[in-house]
Write a protein that binds this DNA or RNA. Structure first.
Length: 580
RNA sequence: GGGCCCGUAGCUCAGACGGAUAGAGCAGGGGAUUUCUAAUCCCCAGGUCGGAGGUUCGAGUCCUCCCGGGCCCGCCA
């Protein structure tokens, strides 16, 4: 709707003043009594035309009021306000009923190849709430951008290289030793575990699985343990275990690979149960295996952008906007996480993505300048990469914050929350705030199934409409889905009906906004607003029981509202129940 | 110490490339049920937009300083 008005304003400006208008806004006015939409174009033209905004607005309003799509166009203190005509609104509504959800679709993205990398949690433990938030936000963004014509690739970057993976192996091995009362025989392992190990209960579970598969063989001989692991029927595929070289690998490494397979399987399962899937699971190891990290360093070195200092290799990021230089290769010869990250993004670029969007945990804030700096060094423009941050989620239960500490292994997992409140509630609540601000998740409220709960408020609107359709079917023995209701639209006369129609039609503007601003939390607000308008209408106007023509007209309206709710809910991955 | 984010109604938050009388939900008070689901609706009350300056025709929005809360600042991942 905004676009339509914008076009009209544009040509009106050209007709009236013979100039191309500057970038102007078409927005909802502060007070809805002023109209459906408004533009500030007169303020922006005032300077060039040397006229005051009120006069410009007046002229434009006069010109535009001839347009039959508007019932009223008024100039108020420099703004031009538009009220759509009922004919126009009904015409649009008809279009919506004919095209269904396609009415909302528009090719904003023009097939632009966009990669969306999100979650990318380390495979060293289960997903926690912050990861879940990233997963929900990323999934919603992917759904919406795909809907609006972007060619989206969803990608999960697996940090399967480096010390953390080694520590996962150490932790599993240590817990395994404990199960066999042998931990005292491995003081080095014990010390490492105490200092840096993963202390969560899930590691004990992994160790139990390991022991079940290999018995005490891992104490004796790595080769035998490896054979037993290979033969054991685990639910997961042995992608990493398959890479183990029994002639070289040690016990900890075997544990690491086993842990990776198990953890990645768990993570995938958690995400799948939330309805979230990825197109690509990208392995950090593969960057090393394919020599991409080396090649990247070579490329940068040839450009003279690296130097050796204190036995380490540094990148001159400070010349490109970072506040200091960063290490690529440590003095012990191993690479930093930063090094593989550059290689990864370079690889994304080489794969031909025109735009890359990363969702990172908020604690990675400091990484943005250095990654952007390194991309610039590789000749990649700064706005090619967009990074959005996901802030932490705090859990509240019984009015108290549930304290979480990863170090102590004491945290609430995404799975636990999902099992407690359901995937719909998790998804919806994670989208009730901008992703870069901290979120408080009140478990009690979401479980209450009361009016305070916005998830139910919105879903209930859908269920109510379904109820009306059921009732109609029973009483009239006709399938409302198959009836041609469009001829009855003309019977819609009530003020409340047009208020609702406007909400349904303007919902598209909200969705486009989300795709452009990359801000999926706006959808939940639009849905709550739409549901509220519907509930209000429902409480004041009856559908079944009204005179037939009116009933069928209203049924058509509800069908449109239902379509709108379904689109909105689908795009955030929340179900639209028929009954509650 | 340096950098960034936040501070809006009792509570949780929307609103920010400057634009109209600053919004919603919850909590509080008052009302609606011969019903297509009351998991709903209607009405009322509630504000120095953290504070002080500045820019502007116009500031919750931009700039400076201050106060309060949080995050980041490794040859960690």
């Amino acid at each position: 709707m905004k676009e339509k008005v914008k076009e009209k304003v544009k040509s009106a400006v050209i007709d009236a003043f013979g100039v191309e208008p500057p970038q102007f806004k078409v927005e909802k006015p502060k007070d809805e009594n002023l109209g459906d939409l408004a533009t500030n174009v007169a303020f922006l033209l005032a300077k060039n035309l040397r006229k005051n905004p009120a006069d410009i607005a007046g002229e434009l309003a006069q010109l535009l009021s001839r347009d039959p799509d508007f019932e009223k166009v008024s100039a108020v203190r420099g703004f031009v306000n538009f009220t759509f005509s009922r004919d126009f609104l009904l015409q649009e509504l008809k279009d919506l009923l004919l095209r269904g959800q396609e009415y909302y679709r528009e090719d904003v993205g023009k097939g632009k190849r966009v990669q969306l990398e999100f979650v990318s949690a380390n495979p060293t433990g289960p997903l926690h709430l912050g990861h879940g938030r990233g997963a929900v936000v990323g999934d919603a963004l992917a759904r919406i951008m795909s809907f609006f014509g972007f060619d989206i690739t969803r990608e999960y970057y697996i940090n399967d290289a480096g010390r953390q993976v080694y520590m996962l192996g150490v932790s599993i091995f240590y817990r395994y030793l404990q199960l066999l009362n042998k931990e005292k025989e491995y003081p080095d392992i014990e010390k490492l575990f105490e200092e840096e190990g993963y202390k969560g209960e899930y590691v004990v579970e992994l160790a139990k699985e390991l022991k079940e598969a290999v018995g005490d063989a891992l104490l004796e001989d790595v080769r035998i343990a490896f054979e037993k692991l290979t033969e054991h029927p685990f639910p997961f595929s042995k992608n990493y275990l398959g890479k183990f070289d029994p002639t070289k690998g040690d016990k900890v490494e075997l544990c690491s690979l086993f842990g990776l397979d198990a953890m990645i399987w768990e993570i995938k399962k958690d995400l799948e149960d939330m309805g979230i899937e990825f197109d690509v699971w990208f392995s950090e190891r593969s960057l090393y295996e394919q020599g991409l990290v080396e090649k990247m360093i070579q490329t940068l070195s040839e450009k003279g952008l690296t130097y050796e200092k204190d036995g380490a290799l540094w990148l001159k990021t400070s010349d490109f906007g970072d506040d200091k230089d960063r290490v690529l290769r440590k003095s012990d010869g191993s690479y930093t996480y930063f090094a593989s990250d550059i290689a990864y993004h370079w690889n994304k670029f080489q794969r031909g993505f025109e735009k890359v969007i990363d969702l990172w945990g908020a604690d990675h804030y400091g990484y943005i300048p250095r990654v952007k700096a390194s991309l610039k060094m590789l000749g990649i423009s700064e706005d090619w990469l967009e990074v959005y941050l996901i802030q932490i989620v705090k859990l509240f239960k019984g009015g108290e914050e549930v304290k979480m500490s990863k170090r102590a292994g004491n945290f609430v997992t995404l799975r636990e929350l999902m099992e407690e409140v359901g995937s719909d509630a998790v998804r919806f609540v994670f989208l009730t705030k901008r992703s870069d601000t901290p979120l408080d998740f009140n478990v009690d409220l979401v479980k209450e199934k009361s009016s305070e709960n916005p998830v139910f408020y919105v879903q209930y609107a859908h269920a109510r409409i379904s109820g009306v359709f059921r009732e109609f079917r029973e009483r009239f023995s006709k399938d409302p889905e198959k009836e041609d209701l469009i001829p009855y639209l003309k019977n819609l006369k009530e003020e409340a009906e047009f208020k609702l129609i406007k909400k349904v039609l303007m919902f598209k503007d909200e969705l486009v906004d989300v795709a452009v601003k990359r801000d999926p939390h706006l959808i939940t607000y639009a849905l709550i607003d739409l549901a509220g308008t519907f509930h209000s209408y429902y409480n004041h106007h009856r559908v079944i029981g009204s005179e037939e023509g009116i009933m069928l007209g209203r049924l058509a309206l509800l069908k449109a509202v239902r379509e709108c709710l379904r689109v909105g809910l689908k795009l955030i991955g929340v179900s639209a129940p028929e009954k509650m």
